[in-house]
Computed example of a mutant assay.
Amino acid sequence: MTTAVLPAEYTVRPPVPADSGAIFALVSAYNTAVIGTADCTLADITNGIIDPGFESRTDGWLVLDRDDVPVGYGTACGKGNREVAEIEVLSQDAMVAGWLFDRSLRRAAEMGREAGHADVTVDSYVYGADTSLRALLSEHEFSTGTTFNRMRIDHTEPVATPDVPAGYVVHRGADDDRTRRIAHDVIIECFSGQFGFVARPHEEWLEARAAYANFSWSQFTLLELDGKAVAFRDCSDRDVEIENCGHIDGLGVIESARGRGLATYLLRDAFALDAAAGRAGTILHVDTNNPTPALHLYLSVGMRPTLVIEGWRRTMPATR
Rank of each mutant, 00 (worst) to 15 (best):
Y10G: 06
I87K: 06
D154Q: 04
Y168L: 15
N47Y: 11
R82F: 05
D177N: 00
T46K: 13
I23P: 01
G252W: 07
R313T: 14
D239R: 15
A183L: 14
M1F: 05
G261H: 01
Y265I: 06
L225E: 13
V253S: 11
A294K: 00
E114Y: 02
C245R: 14
V27A: 07
G311T: 00
A76F: 02
P162M: 15
A318C: 13
H140V: 03
A25N: 15
S256R: 12
A213K: 09
R82V: 06
R260H: 14
L133G: 00
V240G: 03
L295G: 10
F215K: 03
D185V: 11
T306E: 15
V198I: 14
L100I: 06
W99T: 02
V120E: 02
D239I: 04
D226M: 08
N289C: 04
W61F: 15
A18W: 12
R107P: 02
G60N: 05
G80Q: 10
E9D: 07
H202V: 08
G302V: 07
D59G: 04
R57D: 11
E83T: 08
T315P: 00
R258W: 03
T144Y: 01
T156N: 04
D67S: 12
C245S: 14
V286E: 12
L133C: 06
G145H: 11
E204I: 09
A231T: 03
G53H: 06
A76N: 02
A33I: 09
M1V: 04
P165M: 07
P165R: 07
R134P: 02
A229G: 12
E139M: 15
I45L: 05
E83G: 15
